[in-house]
Amino acid sequence: MELKKNPLKKKVKKKVSRDGKIMFLCIVPFLILAFLFSYFPLHGWIYSLYDYKPALGLSGSEFVGLRWFKLLVSSKTQIDQIIQVMKNTFAMSFLGIATSILPVGFAILLNEVKCKGFKNIVQTLTTLPNFISWVLVYMIAFSLFSTTGLVNTLLQEGGLITDAIKFLDSDSHTWLMMCLWNLWKGLGWGAIMYLAAISGIDPELYESAKIDGANRFHLMRHITLPALMPTYLVMLMLSIANLLNNGMDQYYIFQNAFNKTHIQVLDLYVYNIGLGGNSLSLATALSMLKSVISVTLLAVVNFASKKIRGSSII
């Protein structure tokens, strides 16, 4: 029996391994794409060791070793600039983290709206801003808050102010403004996930709590809120891991000569000195440091998550 079975098994195995190889061949084009646009660019990090001039190419550029990294910590003006940029980056990130609890509250309160139609309208219209680009957000900001915009006109007509307030072309409260625009764009969308989580809560829980005499506020506080905490914790950890990644669209579009000091976050700074100011190598050195720190942060947060929650976030 055994003798007879063995060759058959081998045949099956061979067929399986042949199928597996074919499947592999099928996805090779995609693997190449992933390689080209994710792994291959890493070779660019060596540009941080050169004084790279695009006109000369890498072979014609001077090898300068760690000059750019030393520059980051030796020149006084450079240090001051970096400190300001880091302050902005952390300010935006921490404001983002501080306001990340708001979508939870939004979802809990919206869940208390019993009128289905109203709830749908609210949900649709509050998630809409998430789906427009920052260019459009800026256009809206421009048409409402410029010196001749609607808000200034209304305030002047109401006699509250005489001179138009410069909301956009000034450096007052830049961090707060950016945070508020972020909130306008993301609040409704951020709540969707929590609303989905709420719909997954066992109704029995509410029923039995009601029998025990809990009112509406007790239910929100002691059932809905705790049920959302695991999701919130994951989101919180992800945003900590993304501390340095503010993205640049928003800040690039809102930046102008007036607010530059306080709006320049790390991503935007890399763009401004790299493609705007043509210090390609310095910008590469910076973004390389940023990538390394980000990955480390993610690893640390993931480790913490394993310790605290017992499961990883990535």
């Binding site: 592999f24 996805i27 995609f30 693997l31 992933a34 080209l36 646009f37 994710s38 792994y39 291959f40 660019p41 890493l42 070779h43 660019g44 990090w45 540009y47 991503d267 890399v270 763009y271 790299g274 493609l275 390609l280 910008a283 590469t284 910076l286 973004s287 390389m288 940023k290 990538s291 980000s294 990955v295 993610l298 990535i314």
Partner: peptide, 22 residues
Amino acid sequence: FWYRAIIITMYFNAGLIPMFIT
């Protein structure tokens, strides 16, 4: 192996200038 090789690309990023040069 291949699955992880693709998923892991979500978590790192070469940066603006290296992407531009690429």
